[in-house]
Amino acid sequence: KRPVSAMFIFSEEKRRQLQEERPELSESELTRLLARMWNDLSEKKKAKYKAREAALKAQSER
């Protein structure tokens, strides 16, 4: 099983909040919005998710 990506971790963290704030969005619209949010995120903020990705990857390799 492959470890999850930093973007996937970000998306899972933000998805529920966005669904509550924007219930009119379809699943595909929500996914596009999350992708745009990820792309607009600064490298400094992405680092938090990339660190979690690395930790999960290291854990799965044990």
Rank of each mutant, 00 (worst) to 15 (best):
R36L: 09
Y49I: 01
R32P: 08
F10W: 10
K50F: 14
M7H: 13
T31N: 15
S5A: 13
M7N: 09
R15G: 06
R22I: 03
R22W: 07
E27V: 05
E24D: 15
R15C: 04
E13G: 04
K46L: 02
E12W: 03
P3I: 15
L18R: 00
M37E: 09
L18M: 08
R36A: 14
P23C: 05
Q19I: 15
L18I: 14
M37F: 04
R52D: 08
L33I: 15
K14M: 12
N39L: 07
A6Y: 06
K44M: 09
K50R: 13
N39G: 07
E43P: 01
K57Q: 06
L18Y: 11
S42W: 00
F8L: 13
A6E: 05
F10N: 01
Q19C: 09
N39S: 11
E20F: 14
E53W: 07
E53S: 07
P3W: 03
S11M: 15
A54N: 13
L41H: 00
L33S: 05
S26A: 08
K57V: 09
L25F: 02
K48G: 10
A54M: 09
E12L: 05
L41V: 02
E29I: 02
K46A: 03
F8D: 13
Y49R: 00
R36I: 08
E29W: 01
R16H: 10
A51P: 02
S28M: 07
I9S: 05
P3L: 10
K46M: 02
S28A: 11
S26V: 05
R15M: 05
E29H: 04
R15W: 03
E61C: 10
L25Q: 01
Q17P: 05
E53V: 10
F8E: 15
Q17H: 09
A51H: 07
L25D: 01
S42H: 05
K14N: 09
L56V: 12
K48Y: 04
L56K: 09
A35G: 10
E21H: 06
E27I: 02
A55P: 07
E12S: 13
K46V: 03
Y49A: 00
R22D: 07
M7S: 11
E12Y: 03
R15D: 00
E13P: 01
K50A: 07
S42M: 01
A58R: 12
D40R: 04
L30D: 01
E61R: 04
E12Q: 07
E61M: 15
A58N: 15
K50Q: 14
L30P: 00
E43V: 04
A35Q: 14
K46F: 00
S28H: 11
K45G: 14
S5H: 01
W38T: 00
Y49C: 01
F10I: 00
N39T: 12
I9D: 01
F10P: 01
P3Q: 14
E20R: 14
A51V: 11
Q17R: 08
L41G: 00
E24S: 06
Q59G: 11
E20K: 15
S60L: 11
E43W: 03
A54C: 11
Q17E: 14
S5M: 05
S60C: 13
N39H: 08
A58H: 15
R32W: 07
A55E: 15
N39Q: 14
K44A: 10
S11W: 10
R2P: 03
R16T: 10
K14F: 13
M37H: 03
P23F: 02
L34M: 12
E20Y: 09
F10R: 00
Q59P: 11
E61Y: 05
M7L: 09
L33R: 06
A54Y: 10
K14V: 10
V4K: 11
M37K: 03
A51D: 08
R36T: 12
K45W: 04
A54G: 10
S42A: 08
A54K: 14
